[in-house]
């Protein structure tokens, strides 16, 4: 006989309330995580899409890619195998009536970026929704340079703008910039005059990215912490109310372990049902939310967060239930008869 389930069946309202609260908090965590991930993708997809490697910037730049300039000679010496250098500049391209804000990328080797011919451009597929078509002429207003759209690339964004991959010559004309800003090497090597960053460090060095992610992460972790405390408080209240009953059960021969199993079963049931519902809704949300909304919740993140909820629930309920071990059957009997 499963006493845990029988208690839940008898006291539906009590358990529904805690289930509803866990559901709402976990849903909020999933949605926030989706938003955080989506914003991160929107901000840095083009960097995150690169394989793990080392990003080098000039020492004088002090970790800011906008200030970094790398000598051509250094690039020549270090761009073997999978290594390449690239530059990023924010700007815009115009069609007759529309202006499209873009992040312009150019690279020394098209190993991870598209190979672009001079006078052409590859743009993120989100520009399709803005009415841009393949073969269309787009003009860079400052330089007057005209670029033909050769095609579209998937999920290439930087600093919340769609990315435009350009040829080095066009990039030089548009931004009057000869040198590259960042050198990417597939291996972790030290290069004289350059500071090395892992991908994670490179992303963290970008101020907007760090501030955005830190805020969202803080909210997320607070919510996880709150849900843990909620479990602890809820089960503590329940256990305090049931102290007398636990004492009687111990008196008639119940093992303390059985009482913990009863509590854990209830915690698992509540967490499973609440989190399952949250997972379903948060996954469905990715299909229902408008495409312009940065929302991305991969299954691995979902499973990781769900696991976290189980761990936090287990910890919260176990801590709150520690006093069950101290319950003396005799005291419970005497209290009940007082």
């Amino acid at each position: 006989m499963n006493m845990a389930l029988k208690e839940m069946k008898k006291n539906k309202t009590r358990f529904l309330i805690i289930g509803a609260v866990v559901f709402l908090i976990s849903l909020l965590v999933f949605l926030l995580s989706g938003l955080s991930n989506g914003l991160s993708e929107d901000n840095m997809a083009s960097i995150r899409n690169l394989p793990d490697g080392t990003f080098h910037m000039s020492e004088e730049a002090e970790g800011s890619y906008t200030q970094s300039l790398i000598e051509e000679e250094t690039i020549q010496e270090n761009t073997e195998d999978e290594s390449f250098a690239f530059s990023v500049q924010m700007g815009a391209l115009e069609t007759g009536t529309q202006k499209h804000s873009l992040a312009f990328f150019t690279t020394t080797a098209p190993s991870h970026f598209p190979d672009v011919q001079e006078g052409h451009v590859f743009v993120d597929q989100s520009l399709k929704q803005e009415g841009v078509t393949a073969g269309e002429d787009l003009e860079h207003p400052q330089s007057g340079r005209s670029l033909v759209v050769s095609g579209f690339v998937d999920n290439e964004r930087f600093s919340h703008a769609p990315v435009a991959f350009t040829n080095a010559e066009d990039f030089r004309t548009m931004f009057r910039m000869d040198q590259k800003q960042v050198l990417y090497t597939s291996k972790n090597v030290d290069i004289k005059g350059l500071d090395a960053f892992s991908k994670k460090e490179f992303l963290a060095s970008i101020p907007s990215y760090q501030a955005e992610q830190m805020t969202l992460s803080m909210i997320l972790w607070f919510l996880v912490l709150i849900s843990g405390m909620l479990f602890a408080i809820f089960f503590y209240m329940m256990n305090v109310q049931k102290t007398g009953m636990f004492g009687i059960l111990k008196a008639i021969g119940f093992h303390t372990r059985d009482l913990f199993i009863m509590m854990w079963t209830q915690m698992l049931m509540i967490t499973f049902l609440s989190v399952l519902l949250s997972v379903i809704i948060s996954q469905v949300a990715s299909f229902l939310l408008p495409e312009t909304m940065p929302y991305d919740l991969p299954l691995e993140t979902t499973l990781w967060l769900a696991g976290l909820f189980f761990a936090v629930g287990f910890l919260g309920s176990t801590l709150s239930g520690l006093h069950i071990r101290q319950i003396k059957p005799l005291e419970a009997i005497q209290q009940g008869e007082g």
């Binding site: 029988k6 069946k9 008898k10 007398g244 009953m245 009687i248 008196a251 021969g253 009997i333 009940g336």
Partner: peptide, 15 residues
């Protein structure tokens, strides 16, 4: 081996 009857019935309320 033991059976218990208390002053209050002490039945489990949800069974």
């Amino acid at each position: 081996e033991f059976g218990f009857i208390f002053q209050s019935s002490h039945l489990v309320p949800f069974l």
